[in-house]
């Protein structure tokens, strides 16, 4: 698997070259959000706002009202939990094109609970006019800025940084409101997002070896959640669906799928895998295993759905695994 480094850093600069009205705002975390080079490339389009996110959000709304396209860069957790009222009243209600580029989503930071945005998708799915993208690999980092721009309204991106695997072909960019099919099958449907997709890929390999027919789809548009290809796949999966996400088990991908099942009157079981509560500070791999958002847990969920003992152990799972290093 190819590992790409600092993809957003490059993409943000290239994107800004195409759109002169694009500006970047940071609350003292620009260098941790891959816009340090942007600052030196476009010093007049980089606004340091101090460690003051509320003002930054409303200020961005003022810039957007005058035709600028603000891309706010800081950690995801500070862009919804700390400033939800500003996000809603200054930006979302008037439907302004402000893009919240939220870094270190979920447990991708060892910074502990204050840094871990575990319910951003859940909270922001309840915000009208908001679009939410959850990034899963380097190809999506390359595609998401254009999609965010085209939305022409408030957008929240759960962005990945530094070393990120390229799971999807570079020539197949992400599409708005379309899941990416990674495996086709009819027994079970696996829906994964963010860093959990790599885990689901590993589990899919092992499940197939055991003779299961697996439909695996990677989901990156969390709101709106109206993708007809997901609905079709829910209809055809024999045993039901499993969702796995780098997010609290309530409110995110699993809840969105549950709503889709209920609203369409589908007779399908669903197992939701997500974080069971607040995490703590430790490495990504440790936390994924500890809280069960990993391949083994996914296999167990499939066993639960199918009622079969698949006899899959850690050895069965693909060895190749991306481990990134610790940094707050």
């Amino acid at each position: 698997m190819k590992i790409e480094v600092n993809t957003h850093e490059r993409c943000m600069i290239e994107f800004a070259a195409k759109h002169p009205e694009v500006v970047v705002l940071s609350a003292d975390l620009g260098s941790s959000c891959e816009v340090k080079k942007f600052r030196s490339t476009y010093p007049d389009r980089y606004f340091t706002m101090g460690i003051a996110e509320q003002n930054m959000c409303s200020w961005a709304a003022g810039l957007a009202r005058e035709g600028y396209r603000p891309f706010i860069h800081t950690f995801s957790v500070f862009l919804y939990r700390r400033i939800l009222d500003q996000l809603e009243m200054s930006v979302a209600y008037p439907n302004l094109p402000v893009v919240f580029v939220g870094f270190v989503p979920g447990i991708t930071t060892p910074g502990g609970v204050s840094h871990q945005s575990i319910n951003d998708v859940g909270v922001l799915r309840t915000v009208p006019n908001m679009t939410i993208f959850d990034i899963g690999d380097a190809t999506e980092i390359e595609g998401v800025l254009d999609l965010a721009y085209e939305r022409n309204g408030p957008v929240f991106i759960r962005m990945l940084r530094k070393e990120v695997p390229r799971l999807f072909p570079a020539e197949e960019p992400m599409q708005f409101n379309r899941a990416r099919v990674l495996s086709e099958g009819e027994d079970v449907l696996l829906l994964s997002s963010s860093i959990c997709t790599e885990e689901a890929i590993r589990a899919t390999g092992a499940l197939k070896e055991k003779g299961l027919s697996v439909q695996h789809m990677h989901v990156s548009t969390m709101k709106p959640f109206t993708d007809p290809t997901i609905l079709d796949s829910l209809r055809k999966c024999r045993y039901g669906a499993v969702t796995i996400e780098n997010h609290y088990e309530i409110g995110g991908l699993g809840s969105a799928v549950a709503e889709m099942i209920a609203e369409n009157g589908l007779d399908r079981r669903l197992v939701k895998i997500g974080l069971p509560g607040y995490p703590h500070g430790a490495s990504k791999m440790y936390l994924m295993k500890k809280y069960g958002i990993d391949a083994m847990h996914l296999v167990r969920a499939v066993e639960q759905l199918t009622g079969k003992d698949l006899k899959i152990t850690e050895d069965y799972l693909l060895e190749e695994r991306f481990v990134d290093y610790l940094e707050v």
Binding site: N55, A61, Y93
Partner: peptide
């Protein structure tokens, strides 16, 4: 009115962002 100001403290920042842009 330019904006929805009912939640206090936000409009000054929106106005300042507008002034910055202008």
């Amino acid at each position: 009115f330019e904006n929805t100001a009912g939640s206090l403290g936000q409009t000054i920042s929106i106005a300042a962002g507008t002034a910055h842009a202008r």
